[in-house]
Nucleic acid binder design. Structure first.
Length: 218
DNA sequence: TAGGCCATCTGGTCCT
DNA sequence: AGGACCAGATGGCCTA
């Protein structure tokens, strides 16, 4: 049960995303009141209401141009209301920042939309670079050949093991005591769930693979 | 069909 | 002030 197929959905254009032409609210400036969240923390239900109000406000525009507000094809996701978990608690702002941001400020809806899209783009690029780094890490980790590529958690776990194995080798060469031990069925952590067990199995294969790799490089 | 993995969006916070 | 970073939410794809 692994390796979910992932294709990067194309970035959604402003018009597609908001279900309106990009200048749909050009003439309407929205007065945004920046709230001190520390007050809201005392009333989580009130926060939920604020959020719902914001979401429904945002959705108004797209609902008019589309009867189906829920699902859609991959890569063209429409904005849907986010359901918050019961445990959701907004993070309180630091008092200094809250004080600084307190008060009203006029921000055009167009400007907000634009900033959000730009922010999304930056976040996308950031995640892509992070994934590139993961890919580079995968390429330098010796592991049992598999049809599927290593998942992120596997990559990190195996990288950690590889570092530990290398450290052991270095210490061994110096005649020092090996700082790490690899015990069968138990890999340096308190892993208990199924996912971790699967990673452990991978690790077991990988540990011997690491050792062989290190020995041949000597 | 359930569960795992992932990309993306989003809003809050931190940092420069 | 604006960008980077982070974590939660959501939904799509894939496999057992």
């Amino acid at each position: 049960m692994r390796s979910g197929g992932v294709s990067r959905p194309p970035a959604v254009s402003e018009e597609e995303y908001w279900g309106q032409p990009s200048n749909w609210q050009d003439s309407e400036d929205v007065e945004v009141e920046l709230l001190d969240n520390s007050e809201d923390m005392k009333q989580p239900s009130g926060n939920q209401i604020l959020l719902d109000q914001f979401i429904s406000k945002q959705n108004k525009g797209s609902e008019e141009s589309s009867s189906d507000g829920e699902s859609c094809g991959r890569g063209k996701r429409k904005r849907t209301a986010r359901r918050l978990s019961p445990s959701y608690q907004p993070t309180p702002m630091l008092s200094a920042q809250a004080a600084q941001k307190k008060g009203k400020r006029r921000v055009s809806a167009r400007e907000r939309n634009l900033r959000r899209l730009e922010s999304n783009e930056r976040e996308r690029m950031r995640m892509h670079s992070l994934n590139d780094a993961f890919e580079q890490l995968r390429q330098v980790i010796p592991h049992v050949k598999m049809e599927r590529k290593l998942s992120k958690i596997e990559t990190l776990t195996l990288a950690k093991n590889y570092i530990m194995a290398l450290t052991n080798v270095i210490c061994d060469m110096r005649g020092e005591e090996k700082p790490y031990t690899f015990v069968d069925g138990e890999s340096s952590g308190e892993n208990n769930n199924d996912e971790d067990i699967e990673v452990e199995n991978l690790e077991e294969n990988n540990n011997s693979s690491c050792q062989r790799d290190l020995e041949t490089r000597d």
